[in-house]
Amino acid sequence: MPTVLLTGANGFLGSHLARELLTRGYAVRAFVRPGSNRSTLNRLPLTFAQGDIRQPAEVEAAARQCDYIIHAAALAQVNPARSQLSWDVNLSGTENVLYAAHKARAQRLVYVGTANVFGFGSQAQPGNEETPYKGYPYGLDYIDSKYAASQLVTKTSRQWGLPVVSVHPTFMLGPLDARPTSNAMLLELYRGRVPGYTGGGKNYVHVRDVAVATVNALSQGRTGEHYILGNENLSYQEAFRLMAEVMQVKPPRFQIPDWPALTYGHLCDLIARITGKPALINSAMMKVAIDGHYFSVDKARQELDLPATPIRLAIQEAIDWFIKQGYVN
Rank of each mutant, 00 (worst) to 15 (best):
D52C: 14
A62D: 08
V153R: 06
L242Y: 00
P195Q: 08
V194G: 05
Q84N: 03
A318R: 08
V32H: 09
D298H: 04
R222T: 09
A318Q: 06
Y111W: 06
Y204C: 07
I143Q: 09
A211P: 10
T94K: 04
P163H: 03
R43H: 13
A289H: 02
V78Y: 14
L5C: 07
S296E: 00
F171I: 08
F254C: 14
V110S: 04
W259S: 09
L17Q: 11
V194Y: 04
R158M: 06
T263S: 15
T309D: 11
I70C: 05
T309I: 02
Q125W: 00
I53C: 06
P163R: 02
A314S: 15
V117P: 02
E20Q: 12
L17E: 13
T181F: 15
D298P: 00
T40D: 08
A27G: 04
A72K: 04
V246P: 13
V4P: 02
P137V: 06
K299N: 05
T40V: 12
H293S: 01
A284Q: 02
A284T: 03
Q65A: 12
Q325M: 14
L306H: 04
T40N: 14
D144Q: 15
E317H: 13
M172E: 07
L187Q: 08
R158A: 13
H293V: 00
R158F: 02
I271P: 01
R54W: 04
G192D: 08
G230H: 03
T154S: 14
Q220V: 01
D141Y: 07
M185A: 07
S145G: 09
A314Q: 15
P126I: 00
I290V: 15
V153D: 12
